[in-house]
């Protein structure tokens, strides 16, 4: 079933617009508690002494850390598609990309935007996919990470 057949309505003016979500202050405690909460086995990500002897000379964030900062998790006002479709939503996929190490003391500015919205029909009927991207910049304005999320509503 194509998008037009079930009259998918949403605010198209939101797509592609970058919104500021706020900042995240990176602390040693955050890096360690996140690494421990996901059961990371490699101590260079949660033991400061092992990290000091490791390739980065100190603690750095796990590559997946930024995946926990979506606009829902940050209690921020983000893009509102005002979509009139579906009763339940779930994650369909995600991608995390790291460009520079994230270290304690960094203050990351986070932005988000809706990259795409499209409809598909699966075995259970029509579904709508929304692709969001969060981008993380450090205090020097360098892009340090990006997270792309695909969500599905049905």
């Amino acid at each position: 079933m194509a998008e037009e057949e079930f009259k998918l309505e949403y605010d198209r003016s939101v797509v592609g617009v970058e919104y500021e979500l706020g900042t995240v202050t990176i602390t040693q405690e955050l890096l360690v508690s996140y690494a421990q909460s996901v059961g990371e086995p490699n101590p260079i990500y949660w033991d400061p002494e092992a990290a000091r002897r490791g390739p980065h000379g100190g603690l750095v964030a796990l590559p997946t850390l930024c995946s926990i900062y979506s606009f829902n998790a940050m209690n921020a006002t983000g893009p509102d598609l005002k979509m009139n479709f579906g009763t339940t939503g779930m994650d369909a996929g995600a991608a995390v990309e790291t460009f520079l190490p994230i270290r304690p003391g960094d203050v990351l500015r986070v932005t988000t935007k809706v990259k795409d919205v499209y409809a598909k029909t699966g075995r259970s009927g029509p579904m709508v996919f929304t692709i969001n991207e969060e981008t993380f910049y450090d205090q020097q304005g360098r892009k340090v990470a990006a997270v792309t999320r695909s969500g599905v509503r049905r």
């Binding site: 086995p41 390739p55 997946t64 995600a94």
Partner: peptide
Amino acid sequence: GILSMSYLSQVVLTWADNIELEKLDVIY
């Protein structure tokens, strides 16, 4: 999903200490 994704990342992160996981892409 993001917890499951982190589990998958650990396969790479425990492979060696001197490597960099630059990008991870998953489908739930």
